[in-house]
């Protein structure tokens, strides 16, 4: 059935549960609580300020797309909720970050505007979980991920890391100093993708 966890391309690494990890050093920009910026549902943030961290809350069936240009140190994070803007064009006009097909192009365009280059950008994704759906009527997470795959494929963008599907709650963090992307699972474990 569709709820099996799709593991990231064999590149993931299970790291310590969050409560066992050493507190981050205040002198490091990576991970200080005060520098966490939350990217809400149906929102996007892109920055060329290479400190702090962009984070999502629990993703459910939504998808977080994290992009990073390691040379220019430009990062962006999109958190979209639905695959296709065709269901409501008006909404896509007022908030393109609701949908994969309108949000993803805009995420990349914002990064380019800040100086990122397509050939240098590293793209990683998480989320797209599914509720148990034996007859596969809903498949929202799956549809969200398929929409992303289509867009990436047609634009020749390779996913360097992913942690998608399954039934576990997860949130994504991207550290803007290094581009490191960590997925925090509902049970407290963290996976670097």
């Amino acid at each position: 059935m569709s709820n099996k966890l799709i593991l990231p391309n064999g590149t993931s690494q299970l790291v310590q549960p969050r409560e066992e990890r050493a507190a981050p050093s205040m002198s490091s920009a990576e991970g200080t609580q005060s520098s966490f910026v939350v990217v809400d549902l149906a929102d996007m943030k892109a920055t060329n300020h290479p400190t702090g961290c962009l984070v999502t809350q629990s993703l459910g069936s939504c998808v977080a797309v994290a992009i990073f240009d390691p040379e220019a140190r430009i990062g962006g994070l999109l958190n979209y909720i639905l695959p296709d803007s065709h269901i409501c064009r008006e909404r896509a006009m007022t908030n393109p970050f609701l949908f994969a097909d309108t949000g993803i192009p805009l995420l990349f365009r914002r990064a380019y505007k800040l100086g990122a280059l397509k050939e240098r950008i590293v793209t990683k994704v998480a989320g797209a979980g599914n509720v148990l759906d034996p007859k596969e009527n809903l498949r929202l997470g799956q549809q969200n991920y398929e929409a992303l795959s289509r867009i990436m494929e047609s634009n020749h963008v390779e996913l360097k890391g992913k942690f998608v599907g399954g039934f576990k709650g997860m949130a994504l963090k991207m550290y803007l100093e290094t581009g490191r992307v960590v997925v925090e699972l509902g049970d407290g474990q963290e996976v670097e993708i």
């Binding site: 509720v131 759906d133 009527n137 399954g166 039934f167 576990k168 509902g186 049970d187």
Partner: peptide, 9 residues
């Protein structure tokens, strides 16, 4: 939470 999305539609 840790129950995640483990609910049946």
């Amino acid at each position: 939470g840790s129950d995640g999305l483990a609910y049946t539609f």
